[in-house]
Design a protein around this nucleic acid. Sequence first.
DNA 1: TATTGTTATACTCTATAACTATA
DNA 2: TATAGTTATAGAGTATAACAATA
Lengths: 145, 145
Amino acid sequence: MSRKAARFEQAHHLSQLLVGIAEQAKADFTEIAASLGLPVHLARAVVALSEPAPMRDLAGHLACDRSYITSLADQLEERGLVRRVTGDDRRVKLLQLTDEGLAVRKAISDTVAERALVLRRLDDQQRATLTPLLEALAGVETAET
Amino acid sequence: MSRKAARFEQAHHLSQLLVGIAEQAKADFTEIAASLGLPVHLARAVVALSEPAPMRDLAGHLACDRSYITSLADQLEERGLVRRVTGDDRRVKLLQLTDEGLAVRKAISDTVAERALVLRRLDDQQRATLTPLLEALAGVETAET
DNA sequence: TATTGTTATACTCTATAACTATA
DNA sequence: TATAGTTATAGAGTATAACAATA
């Protein structure tokens, strides 16, 4: 019982750290997005669009419903960041960043590169130690490098 | 420029791992809560109530508005998990877990102790390595142990 | 006057279901 | 018939503002 309680405490501590860090990372990203005049969900979509992608794929990538992607696409289009391009299969529409969209994407990534928590608070060696642990936690199949 | 891009990629990779892991941890917790018939937000409140606490403090701890705590308290009370106790300062109401509330809290913590990702996927040594890195990331003032 | 909790209300994000146009 | 995207609508979760009781 005391064993179990100790395990819970440890798990709880680590989980809280993880969740807290993730929340801070998200808050940082939100702030970066806001500094560019974008709500987070639009910024995430822009980041996801490294290549033109069918709306359905984006839904998969962002883990949300197709109908929500429609709404995101509308908002991105209004802001001139994205255009809808009909695919070879004419049912499909690809979302493609405009020049302005590309510029915004670059601004986001540059700012993240400057400010990201994992870069600010850890040095190279710590990151090298951390990465495989996080990959294990995330359930990434370990390449036998 | 390529330097910056590489930094962004690394930050992005690590941040995505962190956010993904946190999301999985949250999903696990949601599932545990659901197995006890509780929505997550109520389960989080129960976990937070290790001691009877003023509603205002709980609002701080859960990072939400006082008015929302009122709504949580109502729901917890309906389920018989919590009671409102008037404090010394008679404006204040403490939320205190009932016996059933305590039992639910224990059930949650026992289940977390069994299932938590950080316990399932990492061994003792890995956790020992991970903890200080996460604490550094979280900005915890490092005790010079 | 300032603070605690409450109430009523409104907003944001996201999903569901029914629809259209293609395939 | 099945799939991609769209539309209209609804729900969950949470906040804001005005309020009552107490300090």
